[in-house]
Design a protein around this nucleic acid. Sequence first.
DNA 1: TAAGATTGACCATTCAATCTTT
DNA 2: AAAGATTGAATGGTCAATCTTA
Lengths: 172, 172
Amino acid sequence: MMVSKQSHCPSPEDVHLLQVWRDLQTALCGLTDVLLADAGCDIGLTGTSFQALWFLYFTPGRSAPMSALARELRFSTAGVTKLTDRLADSGLIRRMPDANDRRVTLAQLTDDGEAAVTKAAIVLAQSVQTRIVDEIGLPHFEQIARTLSELSPVKQACPAAPPTDADAIRRS
Amino acid sequence: MMVSKQSHCPSPEDVHLLQVWRDLQTALCGLTDVLLADAGCDIGLTGTSFQALWFLYFTPGRSAPMSALARELRFSTAGVTKLTDRLADSGLIRRMPDANDRRVTLAQLTDDGEAAVTKAAIVLAQSVQTRIVDEIGLPHFEQIARTLSELSPVKQACPAAPPTDADAIRRS
DNA sequence: TAAGATTGACCATTCAATCTTT
DNA sequence: AAAGATTGAATGGTCAATCTTA
């Protein structure tokens, strides 16, 4: 049987699909690097830190529970705890108790944090403008974002947790 | 002067640009999670590991220098060294000396590695097909990838290294 | 009991320093 | 020198367990 290996090899169509998918990922990754570099040089905020401060900037009272921050950033609550530690150490946010539920601690933007995030936002928006919008136009940019957003699902695809390399080693 | 704060606040246009940019990022992130979850359940390969094996799969001799792998993955060479350690421990690749330049060590796909990557590729391509191509069509998918690729620059935007949160803490 | 936050152990990456080979 | 690979320390995340409050 000379065809026994056939179903074990990806077809040319498979290869092409994965190539396009990878191109898309790589392109967005490169674009992210450049935008963050633009802002990073002037400001010194991590992408993650910026997203956190930017989220707080639009919340009432410039503050939100750790768990809300976790959802926004797609982080675990443990991750947010440690991010908050760093941001509090650098004086950009402070922790506050929630008067209505003493289990929650609020992360609140400080004046320094507000200054940092607004400055970063202006620089970052300028980069988005010149590097993306000036190139392809705002409608096209919006359209791409909308299309991909509609593809991005809310529900889980797979009940199990994604594997780590360590898992693979343990299995072998 | 009631306008003193004006230049320090992002304009509504700035806010919108950053919102669209964030939507785009979040969407691709969610999509990546789903695709990897599809493949991860059946196979047990990290996204990084898959990309490494997938790259080797198309190289002559199923092997490439560590430095080539680093460029492909946008990793430091140190990162590739340790990724290679893990993949070698799980038997998916092996290290080989390069006969022509004894400084380089080649990472070569093993038979197990080839089996793993082809199996993963088939599952992953199927996910791309059903979750993306079936929704928006192949041409549209290709067009988005092409557009973003053209935006992604080759040259560096900023000579300095991007900052870390630790940098910010040290500065304060 | 369950939900929110933290802690400690671990994992995957980076950078800086080192070693070998060119 | 300079380039390729590795090592060790540090960074920034996850998960599992714990503590407090609802």
